[in-house]
Design a protein around this nucleic acid. Structure first.
Lengths: 210, 210
DNA sequence: GTCTATACTCTGATAGAC
DNA sequence: GTCTATCAGAGTATAGAC
């Protein structure tokens, strides 16, 4: 339940940050456990050991709070989201796909907020725009490095393939959240392997038809 | 505004159907014009020339109504969604991608309801499950025919590639609804062309990086 | 900073007349 | 089948005490 964190002295800037951190982590916990649709502000508040009004003191609105939850999730996942310089490591997008099936509640969170972020005023709109720029360029650069190393189809337009991988990942998450029999990681692997060039290291696992 | 339809005699079964048709078409019109988020039941009712309570006489709840709207859309699109037996024609999924950018409001409708359909009790849940089975098998069979005709990578697992195309299409719609600078049709084309085998007919248009 | 208490707002759902 | 009127409900947002 409530995490027994060290609390800096009251009124301090650090204390405010620490509280926000607690809230965001608790939100990830509850939503991860119960799913997006089943979670209301009060549930998160209870998890933190606070009231709903208390939450909104730190984040003015629910939507802003949720946008921060998404950012926090990326921070938690930074190990996955930061491309390794070791070309023997699987690329970001593959690691992410394999991770996502472990956290269905958070996939729900992502899918549902991405859909709501269609409205330009929604606080998550900006989040998704920002994130796309970052991730797309990381994946593109990773592909380019592999091309130079002879590990990836040299004819491919890295930016276009990166877009394909990101969109495939998003679409599979939506579909998998509705029908978990869909092979999310296997399908991302399959696309990657279509472009990957053989080497002693097997790029990713196999794929089951569906 | 209201479509001047022939009205079968009152009380008849045909009349009830005709009214429903009007409602569904009006819903597609309004949502197509104003987007999903900006549309409430009353707006649709006004378009039909009816009240909100009138609508709900025919469809018990808003969610059920919207599930029918999606089905109606597929019916309207049946020309696109039915694979041609002419292998010179672009495949379903390519035609669909090129069509979608013409109807942003309906892409919003699709994206947002797909996200809400994550909840198993949501009436759209079943719609998306059903549709996926149908479309996935159509695309798979289309690919298999092209493989036999030597127009498509014979090594590819048709079912897996079909899954890739469907998920790519969904993901691109989500992303494009947030950032319209993303090249939705071009990216689907790019994936298709990765598997297509050259012939006298150019399979699809070009692609701009993004 | 956090709580209690309450207001609000939106919109979908319902009851009952015609 | 359609309308008018009214409600219900579900959370979110806010005011103000501590």
């Amino acid at each position: 339940m409530k995490s027994p964190e060290v609390r800096p002295r009251r009124g301090s800037y650090a204390r405010g940050r620490a509280t926000k951190e607690n809230i965001l982590r608790s939100a990830l916990d509850v939503i991860g456990r119960n799913g997006y649709g089943a979670t209301i502000l009060r549930d998160i508040a209870v998890e933190v050991g606070m009231t709903q009004a208390g939450l909104l003191h730190h984040f003015d609105t629910k939507e802003k709070l949720l946008a921060e939850v998404l950012r926090k999730r990326d921070e938690v996942n930074r190990e996955i989201l930061t491309p390794s310089s070791d070309l023997g490591e699987p690329p970001l997008i593959i690691k992410l796909a394999h991770h996502n099936v472990e956290v269905p509640g958070l996939v729900q969170l992502y899918v549902r907020l991405q859909a709501e972020a269609v409205e330009p005023e929604h606080p998550c709109h900006e989040y998704f725009l920002d994130r796309d720029v970052v991730i797309h360029s990381r994946v593109t650069r990773d592909i380019e490095r592999r091309q130079k190393a002879g590990l990836f189809d040299p004819e491919a337009d890295a930016a276009v393939v990166a877009r394909m991988l990101l969109a495939l990942s998003d679409g599979l998450q939506s579909q998998w959240a509705i029908d978990p029999t869909i092979d999310l990681p296997g399908t991302v692997d399959a696309l990657w392997n279509k472009y990957a060039r053989p080497s002693e290291r097997p790029a990713a696992e196999n794929t089951q038809p569906n």
